[in-house]
Nucleic acid binder design. Sequence first.
DNA 1: TCCTCCGTTCTGTAATAGTGAATAATGTTT
DNA 2: AAACATTATTCACTATTACAGAACGGAGGA
Lengths: 252, 252
Amino acid sequence: MEDEVKVKSLLKAMKVLECFTSETPDLGITQISERLELNKSNVYNILSTFEKMGYAEQDSATGKYHLGLNLLKFSYVINENLGYQRIVYDVLQEAARKLGTVTYFAISHSQVFYLYSAYPPTANYDFPFRSIAGATAPYHCTSLGKAMLAFMPRAEAERIVAGPKERFTNTTITEEAELWKDIELTRSRGYSLDECEHEYGVRCVGVPVLTARAQLFGAVSASGSLSTVRDDRLEEIVHTMKEAAFCIKERL
Amino acid sequence: MEDEVKVKSLLKAMKVLECFTSETPDLGITQISERLELNKSNVYNILSTFEKMGYAEQDSATGKYHLGLNLLKFSYVINENLGYQRIVYDVLQEAARKLGTVTYFAISHSQVFYLYSAYPPTANYDFPFRSIAGATAPYHCTSLGKAMLAFMPRAEAERIVAGPKERFTNTTITEEAELWKDIELTRSRGYSLDECEHEYGVRCVGVPVLTARAQLFGAVSASGSLSTVRDDRLEEIVHTMKEAAFCIKERL
DNA sequence: TCCTCCGTTCTGTAATAGTGAATAATGTTT
DNA sequence: AAACATTATTCACTATTACAGAACGGAGGA
């Protein structure tokens, strides 16, 4: 973060909140102060202020803190004003139903930024339901990300491709040249494939969503196990997702 | 808000963010400074800091600001750690399917605090899809709120019932005595009714969700138009929602 | 019982948040 | 087209307050 922000204490406070992640949802004062190299009482002052406002909560038993529910109010306002939530959700739902896979919509926002997911209406899902809005993932190892890379402005893609590419599985593409090859392929055929590059056993098909003026708007994907996203169904899946992307474009 | 917070500048900054609501999602520096009686440059410094961190965004055309997508990251972490999201969602989904109405789950958190909603799987919904997490509503005019009032600790209910009760429709209960009567009725029959008290034409059935030790945990509701939530279907709806509440209780 | 770790409280001071006026850029009125 | 009103933005000073550091009290383990 540029240290040229106007209100440094606010930068600090928000960084305290950012310590609370899916991996570490419960944190103590000392842990945070060590991680951010801040004074304990400084962190305490910040967190107790957040707590009074409902943006942090303290477990009375352990004394540890976690994020407060009032943060959800912001997400509600954002969702209300995204404008396209209904359109995208309907299209995702229809694709999920047709294909029997989970479908996602994400935008490009520093990372792959998930906004919506839809689940097929089977009685017992294999996948745990979770609201996906706000989840993020890297570009280089997801079908959504690679679809975005192939259709975003060249300069932006170059910056991302040249950046760090963490390995998650043994199929994760970590070589720049190989990633470019994959991107070219994606561009030419109009869809991307994630061959378990982010998570073992999960295969995805990604399709970019473009605006009327061919600008990258986001991407949709279908994600499933190897036995669901099979080679012999690939054509069907690609077709359905391209249709979904087109529907969103038309109705934006 | 108690002015006895530890970091006053943080209180101020968060109040700036709180100005952005569903009703006023786009705000200019001047508007905010007037509303909060703060100096313009003060608001500017705060908002530009939020912007650098992705918690606010500025419309390049109008110069106005709105909430930034990074706030969704917090909601994702919260959702991931609520623990019961899968349980509640499945139960809501099942009830929505059975009844053909929207179903909600909310907790009591200063207000009726919505967490989950589920929609019946009809092809064309009458209701616009929206993710409800973070939405709030008053106690006195919602089925969820009245179900909560009837089963929360007496002292807390008394404080709420004695508080302000805004009128939304001509059936909104604004008299304390009348509200108590409704609460008693709700307690005795185990469910609450919202007879278009919050929104014209919307009728709801609310049922409290209690923990194993009979503590109030939250509430579920079924909500629909007058032609959906009809008197002759009331028994069925109440039964289904009581079942849903019981299911959540058992699986918590 | 001692020790260690935690969250919490307190006070002085060094840092900075915030004031107010000036600027630049926009759109609106005359 | 000119004058005006209104906007976001910048800047420098200073009064405010955020913060460091040390000390406290309670919980948990040895």
